[in-house]
Amino acid sequence: MDQEILLQALLIAIWAGIAGIDLFNGLLHIHRPIVTGVIVGLILGDLPTGVMTGAAIELVWAGMVPLAGAQPPNVVIGGIIGTAFAILTGQDPQVAIGVAVPFAVAVQACITLMFTAFSPVMHKADKYAEEANTKGIERINYLGIATLFVFYFVVAFLPIYFGAEAAKNVVESLPAWLIAGLGTAGGMMAAIGFAMLLKIMLKKQYIAYLIVGFILVTYLQMPIIAVALIGLAIAMYDFYKTSGGQGAAMRGARGRGI
């Protein structure tokens, strides 16, 4: 029995690793609960329950999609833990969902942490870029994939092998403010990326457009596509207004006229 559950937990953990990679990379969508339910059902030897639970969990997550960088509860772990729990304990799919969702929320918090922890690696990547070291850039991306695999492998293996209840207690023993604080820091981190872009792109004559874009979203809640179209309209106006060589030369961005 022990041997059997170990093997099953390992197989599910491998599937979790693959599905976890697919959530952000590949995006074949083999990570959706509807697919995961079938696989977990096959591994645990109860295909009908797996399919039905997977479909039920799928509908819970149907509206939870990654929009504009905001991450919903983790669909990979939610689907896998939920289905495994339903089959192993013989509970209703609805109860399985109740167990799966808190897990999925906690896992997503860890993902936030990973996205934060990977930020400093970018400076290694800058160095490789400077040296034109293409292998180095590739290694960094493979490291990212490997990290994802190991993370999902561990997160799926432990609760299935040791029981879902025990794992839930561990998650709840972490101080909430620490997890919340890392999440907040994650939300602020994009400011550094934009600041680096501004350091290169922002010249005095462009400050006006930065303000326009900011105002359009802040006060008019415009979607980015609308902001881009307004930017395009201004750019086209500017382009055709100065369609002699003179205008561009007078702006003096760089010495030579056209």
Partner: peptide
Amino acid sequence: KKVSHAASIVGLTVVGGLIASFVQ
């Protein structure tokens, strides 16, 4: 050069909007 200038206008307008929608 003019294309670069025009693209920078669109680019910075978008960055202004992205700051407002992405940084939380």
